[in-house]
Design a protein around this nucleic acid. Structure first.
Length: 293
DNA sequence: AAGGTGTGCAACCGCGCATTC
DNA sequence: AGAATGCGCGGTTGCACACCT
């Protein structure tokens, strides 16, 4: 079962690399490149497996690697992207070109994760460890804590949505057509917020509509996803049967014009929660549900 | 000073995906 | 079509060093 480990051959060296080995690898890759890592060690005169050489090159020897302490900006980028993507270190590393996925992964584990835990936040969900939901409850002090937590998570969701929209732009470029489905499918499963935080069905769908507009809006514009267009009166929203119709509707009704109001944190949370709780449904069904109310 | 414990990080491992044959 | 191969990824391990008692 499975494939043979490439280092299975006896006699191949493992463990820390010596400066001599580093030099051999650097010299070889510098001269010949690394089109086939399996062939690299033999040609470079190394008693290592290709995989080990690749790893050493990527994580340590590559000339454009930045080493040393992470800047505050890098730190924030990692936190935001982790909130968005989870443990997708290679994708996170792609946003920090001079850092390796391994380095970011280690930095996360040894530094950021502990800080989040210290702040009382779950490093996976970025929500409070205590409840991991937004269920509100209590006296004034708890409420103010909840407010802070809501703001905190809203920031992550905000980052998530922006990155989501940007990511979706790439998907559009590569030929994806089911945009709404993409958005829905990529919003990760996380603990649900309390149902009573959704005040009405109207608000739910209204905010979902806002989110669809804003995320789709970002497919065509670099304007912040957090600016939402003026929403048409509830009763004016037609039956929308597919994404193309939605986009056409938006264009025809000029709803992209005049992004007037920023989403409030709780709006974001309501909308995100609405997406999460309804992500198995198609966006079209949700609109149908809404317009038939 | 010495042993124990914690921390950071380089390197390894196993798996999945894409490509090749 | 499917087996073989190579690459890349995320998780884990183990070593070296720092700190504590």
């Amino acid at each position: 079962m499975g494939r043979k480990a490439c280092c299975e051959n006896l006699g191949l060296k493992k463990g820390p690399w010596t400066p001599e080995e580093d030099k051999k690898l650097l010299d070889y890759v510098g001269k010949h490149g690394h089109r086939n890592w399996r062939l690299v060690p033999a040609k470079a005169g190394l008693e290592r497996c290709g995989k080990s050489c690749r790893l050493r090159w990527i994580n340590y020897l590559k000339p454009d690697i930045k080493r040393g302490n992470f800047s505050t900006e890098e730190d924030h980028t990692i936190i935001k992207l982790h909130a968005l993507l989870g443990n997708k270190w290679s994708i996170i590393a792609a946003h920090l070109p001079q850092r390796t996925d391994n380095e970011i992964k280690n930095y996360w584990k040894t530094n950021i994760k502990k800080r989040l835990i210290g702040m009382g936040l779950d490093p996976i969900t970025h929500k409070t460890i205590k409840q991991n939901t937004f269920e509100c409850c209590g006296d004034g002090q708890d409420q103010s804590k909840d407010t802070i937590n809501i703001r905190h998570v809203a920031q992550w969701e905000r980052a998530r949505l922006e990155a989501e929209a940007r990511g979706s732009m790439l998907q559009v470029g590569s030929g994806s057509s089911n945009l709404s489905g993409l958005i829905l499918s990529k919003i990760p499963t996380q603990p649900c917020l309390s149902s009573h935080s959704v005040s009405t069905e109207h608000k739910r769908v209204h905010n979902m509509y806002a989110l669809v507009l804003t995320t789709n809006h970002d497919f065509r514009s670099s304007v912040s996803t957090l600016s939402i267009p003026k929403l048409p009166a509830v009763s004016n929203i037609p039956q929308i049967t597919n994404t193309e119709s939605l986009l056409t509707y938006k264009a025809d009704n000029n709803v992209m014009e005049g992004c007037v109001s920023n989403l409030q944190d709780d709006d974001i949370m309501v909308a995100v929660e609405a997406f999460r709780t309804a992500r198995s449904e198609g966006i079209e069904e949700l609109f149908n549900e809404f317009t038939s109310m």
